[in-house]
């Protein structure tokens, strides 16, 4: 049976991407390749595999590779995935700004950093990469700055689109989504930090 390809764009929304991959796996599709927007699947037994996604934007390239090798040693299969936020959204806008020597050029590095899609053979036990409360708090904490910067970025992009009200509202809507994401991670961060304090 031939592979199927799907086009999806999840930006920084890791949970949604993971849930979709797990839904595909439950229908009997296993990830074999992923590009910027295209995910390629082959058929497998329904729920034969289970997926998690880790954010490694805080790691250098070498550290990211070392972590991926560690996960492979654990018996998992690993895919690098771009966060991909420069694609189509605001590409033109912030490239233009970057050319003007604006500090916004720094955003390229924030956005191009990778996610790791981790595949495990489903043995019926839950699949979590981060398990202690201290580690979970650290993990959620990593999202705070990128999400806040993205909120600011799209607010600025919105303000620059003042000439076109529709565009401006669209950028502001995107900015709000990232602000919401920021608060979601902020709440998780404080929740797990508090729990880790009780534990230790």
């Amino acid at each position: 049976m031939s592979n199927i390809k799907k086009v999806r764009y999840y930006a920084g929304f890791i949970d949604a991407q993971r849930n979709w991959l797990n839904k595909m796996a439950s229908k009997g599709y296993r990830l074999v390749k992923c590009g910027r927007l295209i995910y390629e699947f082959e058929t497998c037994e329904p729920s034969e595999y289970i997926y998690q996604i880790d954010y490694i934007g805080d790691k250098s390239k070498a550290e990211g590779k070392d972590y991926a090798a560690f996960l492979e040693d654990m018996g998992y299969k690993v895919f690098f995935k771009n966060v991909n936020l420069d694609f189509d959204i605001g590409n033109l806008y912030w490239r233009k700004l970057a050319d003007k020597g604006s500090k916004l050029a720094d955003y390229q590095t924030v956005m191009e950093r990778a996610l790791l899609i981790v595949e495990k053979k489903n043995d019926g036990t839950p699949f979590e990469l981060h398990t202690t409360n201290t580690d979970k708090a650290n993990y959620y904490g990593k999202f705070l700055i990128p999400y806040f910067l993205l909120f600011l970025l799209f607010t600025v992009v919105g303000a620059l689109s003042l000439a076109d009200i529709k565009m401006m509202l669209m950028w502001y809507a995107v900015a709000l989504v990232f602000l919401a994401g920021f608060f979601v991670y902020l709440i998780r961060y404080f929740r797990d930090r508090k729990r880790s304090g009780i534990e230790e």
């Binding site: 972590y67 560690f70 998992y76 990469l129 398990t131 580690d135 650290n138 993990y139």
Partner: peptide
């Protein structure tokens, strides 16, 4: 031991009470 064996050791000696995620283990 390598990473996977550490994880197994912890699961077995605690009879599954303490189960470490790979990311947490890597950080530790």
């Amino acid at each position: 031991k390598h990473g996977y064996a550490i994880m197994q050791f912890i699961e077995e000696t605690t009879s599954g009470r303490l189960s470490l995620g790979a990311g947490t283990l890597y950080g530790a």
